[in-house]
Nucleic acid binder design. Structure first.
Lengths: 316, 316
DNA sequence: CCTCCACTGAAGATTTTTCTTCAAGGCCCT
DNA sequence: AGGGCCTTGAAGAAAAATCTTCAGTGGAGG
């Protein structure tokens, strides 16, 4: 870059006036916040071994700076006092201060801009329940998504989309509503979808029909229910593949499941949020539907037609 | 929260079946290399405070683990020996070893994609359905929240929390599941909550009971259902206050509603997302519950007691 | 070639961090 | 209701980190 050239030329002249580069940038309102920026800007004032050190820091930034001062010194083949001097030159009180700055930066970078957003509802203070709750939910989504393995997701959609397998859906006391939601959509997409009622008395009838390679989709978050686990065991014994939507602490059903999703569910409330679970089900539904769109489309049209005839919906 | 208490009790029983998750992952040949994975997989073996610590580490991963053991301990509100014990449990020789692993990971992750965290699921391209869908959902949440008036929200919670008013909950073909979810929670918080069945044949019976000042909570998104509108009209004529959870295009019910929420529901799918609606209901529930926590708490305890007796939930 | 000055690292001093021990507290089971 | 086991954190010991001092080194300029 030609700025580098410029800097090189300027270096001699500004050498005796430290912070010169710094000042120039400040004048243009460019904040020199990150450590990397500080290093680059003040590189002109650095000595040979400091420059060498600087290169190493920037080489694999910021990890190299997060070890001990000794390891960094060794990696750069300089002495520890050189490192100490450099970080002081950059304006930090010492090496720990320098590391603090690096960690703070890392946090900024890792968390996406959306999770940093403090306020979602205008006209409401940051600590209003609306904002606190929404923030928690966004965090939950972010963390849950980060844990998903796309391969596992693909496998899950393959299984659920496979027309040769019958799909059973079941939930617990609260998650029943999610199971219901999932079922309602899946029912439109494909044939052979069954919702297992919550009453465990009826389970044997369903298990009777269950064939090897059929799918059992289970929603189970804390507090994990005894019955659900038993059902999972029995289904697995009969050769069914189990797909589990659970929370971050993982239902014991996971042991028997082919695919498990762990969604974060903690929110500032006496209850847990089922939101991320719903997100996962919606995405799975969207993908399964997409895989065989033509088929789904014809089914949806047929459904529309039937709705029209029953005049259930509003026609404008 | 009191579920945590419960968990603590349950822990002993689950404890002797470690690695449940571990085994699953092994089955798929997924190596358990990263610290985060190790933490998640072995979470079943962790004690209460270790779990607490584990959550904090994963919360802002990996930065939190890169400071001193003391700072991490303080952040998690546990003692330093607890931290030391946890990292040893994970198989590291000590805290420095743990940090080394974290830094190594960081290098891996940072080096490959030049870190623009536009995607939510690592290891999946930005245009993968997982990322596209999640992005759309976050957008929906942001836009829906921006439209909320805190005063209206407060009014809504006042109404729903008012014990002198009976609350009726109803949804449509799909939103029925949300109504169900809302009902299940509200039912724990307060007395006099009724879920109106979807079958419109039964509606006259409910309307018969409806008194002036009672609340009717309606979930209605496109395609808006004829019946729901008729019900709203009749309820309003009998002096009921209507609270509507609808989509961005607003159900015609809004005309009769005291409070209306419009949630954005468009996602890259053949269906609409009910996620923001669920978010709204969860927040309303959280706030109503908070208003009279003592009352709710006693009801929840009574409920717990009954669950215990029916042995519905896992105790071993 | 010599002198001076700035840079550099070895070594020790100092501070901080990490680890270990041990006693208190809680919970379960008999 | 008491014994035993597990978990937890306070406190101090051990280890490691960081910082400081100071002498040696190399290069620039005279």
């Amino acid at each position: 870059m030609f700025f580098d050239e410029l800097f090189y030329i300027l270096r001699h002249y500004v050498k005796n006036r430290p912070c010169a580069g710094h000042l120039i940038f400040e004048r243009f309102g460019v904040s020199t916040n990150t450590v990397a920026e500080k290093l680059e800007l003040r590189s002109s004032e650095l000595t040979r071994s400091e420059r060498q050190l600087c290169d190493v820091i920037l080489q694999n930034y910021p990890a190299s700076g997060l070890g001990t001062i000794t390891s960094l010194a060794e990696a750069a083949e300089v002495s520890t006092p050189t490192v100490a001097r450099l970080v002081q030159k950059l304006g930090f009180s010492g090496f720990p201060g320098f590391q603090r700055a690096l960690r703070a930066e890392l946090n900024e970078k890792i968390s996406s801009p959306l999770t940093k957003r403090a306020s979602w509802v205008d006209d409401a203070p940051e600590d209003h329940i609306l904002n606190r709750f929404t923030k928690a939910v966004i965090d939950n989504i972010g963390q849950s998504m980060a844990k998903i393995d796309p391969k596992e997701f693909a496998l899950c959609c393959d299984l659920i989309g496979d027309p040769s397998r019958k799909v059973y859906v079941i939930g617990g006391r609260i998650t029943r509503t999610l199971a219901d939601y999932f079922f309602l959509h899946l029912q439109v997409i494909r044939d052979d979808v069954v919702q297992i009622t919550s009453s465990s008395n009826a389970w044997p009838h369903y298990l009777l029909d269950l064939k090897a390679n059929d799918i059992v989709v289970i929603f189970d978050i804390r507090r994990y229910e005894n019955g659900t686990l038993k059902l999972a065991k029995m289904a697995r014994e009969r050769g069914a593949e189990i797909i589990l939507f659970s929370d971050q602490w993982m239902s014991p059903v996971a042991e028997h499941a082919t695919v498990s999703y762990s969604s974060h569910i903690a929110v500032p409330s006496a209850w847990d949020s089922n939101l991320t679970l719903m997100l996962m089900s919606e995405i799975v539904i969207a993908e399964v539907q997409e895989r065989d769109w033509e088929h789904t489309q014809s089914r949806m049209e047929a459904l529309e037609d039937m709705f029209d005839r029953t005049k259930l919906f509003r026609k404008f």
